[in-house]
């Protein structure tokens, strides 16, 4: 029943049952705990990963549906992504729990819209909840990473 997944550029074998959400396979089986559980119903965005470059909620994605899909998690972003640099430069995180999901949503935004408007940012980021309310720093950091000043 093992599933082979391509995660952050590497093929890995996952033994979780195929109906297991990718979120729990990442966290419990593979130890990729940067992707967070927040709501389990695709309302908060804390579990956002990229599937073939598109931002998706891993809590709603069964591993059995992911053969041949390129999966990228926060761990695969490298640490020196312009967004991560901007996040640190502006001390965006407070509790930090939602920030992996925020950054993955923002990375997908910049990949398709390198110079986003405020409306683009609203559209791309409003699915990600931050209870600490770091929103204005997230917006400023996205603009900084996009070379738009802030």
């Amino acid at each position: 029943m093992a599933v082979i997944l391509n995660i952050n550029g590497k093929d890995v074998t996952v033994s979780s049952p195929p109906e297991t959400p990718l979120l729990w396979a990442l966290r419990d089986e593979l130890g990729l705990t940067g992707t967070k559980y927040g709501c389990g119903i695709a309302q908060c965005g804390a579990c956002t990963v990229h599937l073939n470059g598109q931002p998706q909620r891993s809590c709603q994605t069964p591993v059995g549906a992911l053969a041949g899909v390129k999966i990228q998690t926060i761990e695969g972003l490298g640490g020196a992504h312009p967004l991560q640099t901007a996040w640190v430069a502006r001390d965006v995180p407070q509790c930090g729990y939602c920030q992996s999901g925020q950054i993955m949503s923002a990375a997908a935004l910049l990949a398709r819209t390198p110079r986003p408007t405020d409306a683009d940012i609203d559209q791309a980021m409003s699915g990600n909840i931050c209870r600490c309310g770091a929103y204005q720093r997230i917006r400023a950091a996205i603009k900084e990473a996009a070379g738009l000043g802030a």
Partner: peptide, 20 residues
């Protein structure tokens, strides 16, 4: 400045949920 921004921007910060 915060000392935890890098850990919290890379998924490396450790929360209870992440304990293995």
């Amino acid at each position: 400045r915060r000392k935890d921004s890098a850990a919290k921007s890379t998924g490396l910060a450790r929360y209870t949920q992440d304990v293995r």
